[in-house]
């Protein structure tokens, strides 16, 4: 396929402008067996994440006597893309994404509370359309909060990239394939610390600076979706709570 023009008169192929996210919808606890779980639809991405633990870390040599170890598994369903059938399970890309996702949550989970234990985070991409690692982190964050595993912050992630000399937020699959740069970022919203940062392509120092700003700005919308999902089970009563005291 020839490279399509990704931006025309300030509009992207799907009609968004440079700063607009795709629609995000999150729900909690679709996986009944897990300690906590969440389902996210982010544009055409559909991802389920579930958390198990804290539980005894096995095999034993993976245990850390001082704190919980975090294990993460990100995989893509073989039917998740609009193209040909994929291979199930882990490939090199999935192994790397699992690792950086794990590190995001190592940063926020209060691991000292559970020495010798493991906390397992699973991210299953059921349908993919670009930006699945960011959507997966955003979703896993909600699954962890739903499980009651203590965290010092609730990360979100989104990608920023560059096309036709313009920085664009939240790249979909076509943009991801043909953009000149892609930079997925995860943020701890309370502290605004950068918790994941990857990049490939071609960006000026100023692009990097402005790209990070765009991602921090986007946090308002993404964390709102996360919070609404977590509060939904309690929502109808939050007003009554105040009334009842």
């Amino acid at each position: 396929m020839e490279k399509p023009t990704l931006i025309t008169n300030g509009k992207r192929l799907d009609g968004r402008d440079q700063n607009t996210l795709r629609p995000i919808k999150i729900s909690v606890n679709p996986v009944k067996n897990a300690a906590g779980s969440a389902y996210i639809e982010w544009g055409n991405n559909k991802i389920v994440s579930a958390v198990y633990g804290p539980r005894e870390a096995l095999p034993k040599h993976t245990q850390d006597p001082d704190k919980a170890v975090i294990k993460c598994r990100y995989t893509m369903a073989p039917f998740s893309s609009l193209e040909e059938h994929g291979r199930p399970g882990m490939n090199r890309r999935a192994i790397e994404i699992s690792k950086v996702t794990k590190e995001v949550f190592e940063n926020v989970i209060l691991r000292d509370l559970f020495p010798g234990n493991e906390i397992s985070i699973f991210v299953e991409v059921l349908q993919s359309d670009g930006g699945t690692r960011a959507a997966g982190i955003t979703c896993a964050s909600v699954a962890l909060a739903a499980s009651g595993i203590p965290m010092r912050d609730m990360p979100y992630a989104v990608s920023v990239g560059k096309a036709e000399d313009t920085l664009i937020l939240d790249l979909d699959k076509i943009e991801d394939n043909y953009s000149s740069a892609d930079m997925p970022i995860a943020i701890n919203p309370r502290t605004q610390e950068i918790n994941l940062l990857q990049m490939d392509g071609e960006l000026t120092p100023d692009d990097v600076h402005r790209g990070i700003e765009m991602v921090i700005k986007a946090g308002e919308v993404i964390t709102k979706a996360q919070r609404e999902a977590l509060l939904a089970p309690y929502e109808m009563t939050s007003e009554k709570y105040k009334a009842s005291i």
Partner: peptide
């Protein structure tokens, strides 16, 4: 002071009730 789980914080009573948790 920051919460680490979903819960109800009561400012007057200075209490925190976790709604999800271990």
């Amino acid at each position: 002071t920051c919460s680490t789980v979903i819960g109800i914080f009561d400012e007057e009573k200075n209490s925190f009730i976790p709604l999800e948790g271990l």
